[in-house]
Simulated scan of single mutants.
Amino acid sequence: MNTDPLIIAGEEVKPGTRATIQIPVARRYTAGDVALPVRVVHGRKPGPRLFVSAAVHGDEINGVEIIRRLLRQSVLKQMRGALIAVPIVNVYGFIAQTRYLPDRRDLNRCFPGSSKGSLGARLANTFLQEVVEKATHGIDLHTGSMHRSNLPQLRASLAEPGVEELARSFGAPVIIDAELRPGSLRQAVSVLGVPIIVYEAGEALRFDELAIKAGLRGVLSVMRSLDMLPASKSQRRPVEPFVAHGSTWIRAPESGILVSQLTVGARIEKGQRLGAVSDPLGTEETQVVAPTSGVLIGRTNLPLVNEGDALFHVAVFEKLDTAADEVDYFQGVHDPPT
């Protein structure tokens, strides 16, 4: 927490100023340049330096809109410390509207990367050096993968120093205590000693207003908990997050057409009929039954399924009634004050 200028890609951002920086990544084979767009807001007073990133998977665009709205918040004029906003990390995938890099690698398995490695390794290495190493805390914004919707939730390694405080201050109703995956941004950031949480909400290539509003509200809440922003004047009580005791994906028992009216956030009871998989003629139908009680935190939106496809993601809680009630409360939360 100091008042020194923040230097990114050789550009100096002094306290009390803002800057848009293009971090060079590579050149296209058409001779054009590829760069990471970064917006830095450096407060006049010292404080934490928070990076907020999105589109590590290029088709996960809710986070891009969350960051766009975040940067328009007038309360940032009162900010302490620095905000480093990177709305599009996987520029290649974002342009192509795909999850992956041009070589079909998953950028979120390329960290920490290398300056002499694959395209993904070089991009990952650049992001770590120019953004993460300048920060004291991080929030990475994601959505469900293609044709899957996620209830707003957090993935975090709660045993890592400072992570649980970040996760609880975000205000999403569900926290998944998730192990660090090799090659992921979350693992690489944790190795550097920077507390990080991952926000998951909505579906790829779709704007989900609930997911966007909740994400914006969550980032602002984290910034307040870090004393980067003044306390909120809202009279509505914050959402109480619940840590899932575990979670399970319920898979298709047969191939066919999935028929289900369930929406994310629904309470699930063990033995409940979640839907059915039918053949196109309707002559054969197999019921999909919940093996456990919990809250539906993710589901497929594609009705055409193969045997073994993941259909419903159910989080399990020790206090299911209270957790389910909190999810219902969360879904009625209003817009954040600006």
Rank of each mutant, 00 (worst) to 15 (best):
L141Q: 06
P230Q: 11
P5C: 13
E203V: 08
E254D: 13
D208P: 03
L185H: 09
L107S: 05
G81A: 05
G93A: 07
L210P: 02
Y29G: 04
G265Q: 01
L320T: 05
R186C: 00
E240M: 11
S293F: 10
T322N: 02
E179C: 04
D103S: 09
R267H: 06
T136G: 06
P87V: 04
R148H: 14
P182G: 14
A19T: 01
G265W: 10
F207N: 11
S115F: 15
S260Y: 03
H142S: 04
L226M: 09
P280L: 05
V13F: 06
L71S: 03
V243E: 01
S74E: 14
V295N: 05
K14P: 07
G215K: 11
L166C: 01
T283A: 03
I212D: 03
D279I: 07
L141G: 01
V163T: 14
S234L: 14
F330M: 09
P173I: 10
D325M: 10
V316G: 00
L70H: 05
D328N: 13
N306K: 11
V189T: 12
N62A: 09
L50G: 01
G218K: 08
I250Y: 06
R217S: 15
L274P: 02
Y100N: 13
D208R: 11
F127T: 01
K116M: 12
D59N: 15
N108W: 06
A188S: 13
T17S: 12
A121W: 04
S234Y: 10
G218Y: 02
Q261P: 15
H245V: 00
V316L: 14
V52M: 08
E179V: 08
V25G: 03
E12N: 14
D103L: 05
E164K: 10
R155M: 03
E269G: 04
G113H: 09
D103N: 12
L220A: 06
D208Q: 11
E209H: 11
Q153N: 14
R267C: 05
M223E: 02
T338D: 14
T20K: 14
L262W: 03
R28H: 14
L166T: 04
S260H: 06
A54P: 04
A324R: 06
V277S: 00
G265C: 03
V91D: 00
L304G: 04
R99N: 13
K77W: 07
L128N: 01
E179A: 13
F330P: 00
V239N: 10
G218A: 11
G138S: 12
G162S: 03
G171N: 11
T283G: 06
I67D: 07
V277C: 01
S234D: 14
E318A: 15
H313D: 03
L226Q: 06
V91Y: 00
I21T: 10
Q97T: 12
V64F: 07
I197R: 00
S114W: 13
I8Y: 05
D309K: 08
Q235Y: 09
L119R: 08
G202A: 03
E209G: 05
S232E: 10
I66C: 02
L216S: 01
V41C: 04
L50A: 02
R72E: 15
A121N: 13
A85P: 07
L83G: 04
N150A: 09
